[in-house]
Write a protein that binds this DNA or RNA. Structure first.
Lengths: 232, 232
DNA sequence: ACCTGAACACCGTTCAAGT
DNA sequence: ACCTGAACACCGTTCAAGT
């Protein structure tokens, strides 16, 4: 085997943080997060693993940098329409963006690092929110809420449904069917709702689920911004 | 060293899935998720690592079981007050419950396995939602939304703020202060909102953030259930 | 300043072999 | 049926040593 070295033909590009992140992006996309090791990133650069530690404190820091790189090429929606339309577009784009990159949500979710790319997005979002009339504190809270919602949702969405699927021993629809059957065969006296809603619960139309949650949040933000007539 | 064996004085309790899960819970609470290895769980049971594979397909399956065990002792809120109060209480309890167990959100979030304990909670939630007048499909979507929100939120909340904190080289307030300073020193012409909102963005009053998002969601569900007067 | 070799202390998982 | 020993193919990280 011995594929460790001589893999990258030209290793003239100097080893920098950006080079590490580029290699990490490549490994992530090609091999997935579980296979993303320091050794493999190093091999991608034609270098030994310990060399990376000169440019990066540890793997966690590399993952922080990777997370920021994953949102670097996100494209904000056009600045037209009301704040609702803009936030909706923002979230749908963000979801699509994460879904387009392998294991992206697993890297991004639960990682609070204010990298340069994220700062640009955050600034843009806050600006739109302020312009829409959101007070400062509420704008910050809203931005956090939306980012959290999208990342958390896609995390679920990108995760294997079960250990069986993760290991490739069952396809996604097999798992879904098994789940529905399982729910339907529960004792109807103890779990009437699960039995009745077996299909809705097990068949994950993620598009619908995402839109549902997002519209609830947008509605909630609307009543915050424009309280219902007669409330004040 | 050799602490592998003879650690558990009585290994008479037969090796079962429940025993594995119990040991895994113990290791998780004591050593954290990063230290939760098959070998360590086995050691906890006075047994060799390969033995576990007789009772469990692989580590993923053990984590699935662990995730369900983590919500097994969740206590649903009292069944009094309107649906809003009940859902609010549900989510706050769920958050507190996850926060109370080390790395719990990291195990639970992004893992969709319908274990027995989760089924009980789901049934109870659906029942309350149906009783409150939610149509079947909306009840299922709402339950998913809330579960996703809480798990995703706590995942962020329980995660280290940066690689520095993870490695114990900086305290949480040090990281927060550094983040605030970083935001404040950004060029004010390009990042006016980040500079202005530096404090709000970097000082994470997680209690507030959680409540804010939750109230928005509840408001959104309210307008779904009881459309604003004059809308129809 | 930057990279390598060798090593340490681990991993998850398989599989023949034991009982 | 259930557990062990030994092994395979890996990990992240440190550190002296090289250039």
């Amino acid at each position: 085997m011995r594929t460790d070295r001589a893999k990258a033909p030209g290793q003239q590009p100097p080893l920098t943080q950006e080079a590490l992140v580029g290699a990490a992006l490549l490994v992530l996309e090609r091999d997935g997060l579980d296979a993303l090791s320091m050794r493999r990133v190093a091999a991608e650069l034609g270098v030994q693993a310990p060399s990376l530690y000169w440019h990066v404190r540890n793997k966690e820091q590399l993952l922080d940098l990777l997370a920021d790189a994953l949102v670097a090429d996100a494209v904000p929606p056009p600045r037209e329409g009301g704040w609702r339309e803009q936030l909706r577009a923002y979230c749908h784009l963000h979801r699509r963006h994460l879904l387009g990159k392998r294991d992206a949500a697993r890297v991004v979710a639960g990682r609070f690092n204010l990298g340069p790319s994220l700062l640009v997005i955050l600034e843009d979002q806050l600006d739109r929110l302020r312009e829409a009339g959101f007070p400062a504190a509420e704008a910050a809270l809203t931005s956090y809420l939306l980012g959290n919602y999208v990342a958390g949702f896609v995390l679920q969405e990108q995760s294997p449904l079960s250990a069986a699927e993760a290991v490739g021993q069952a396809t996604r629809t097999e798992v879904v069917n098994a789940a529905r059957d399982h729910l339907q065969q529960l004792p109807a006296d103890r779990f009437p709702n699960l039995v009745a809603l077996a299909a809705e619960l097990s068949e994950p139309d993620m598009e619908d689920r995402f839109a549902f949650g997002l519209e609830r949040i947008l509605d909630g933000l609307a009543t915050l911004l424009e309280p219902a007539p007669g409330t004040r």
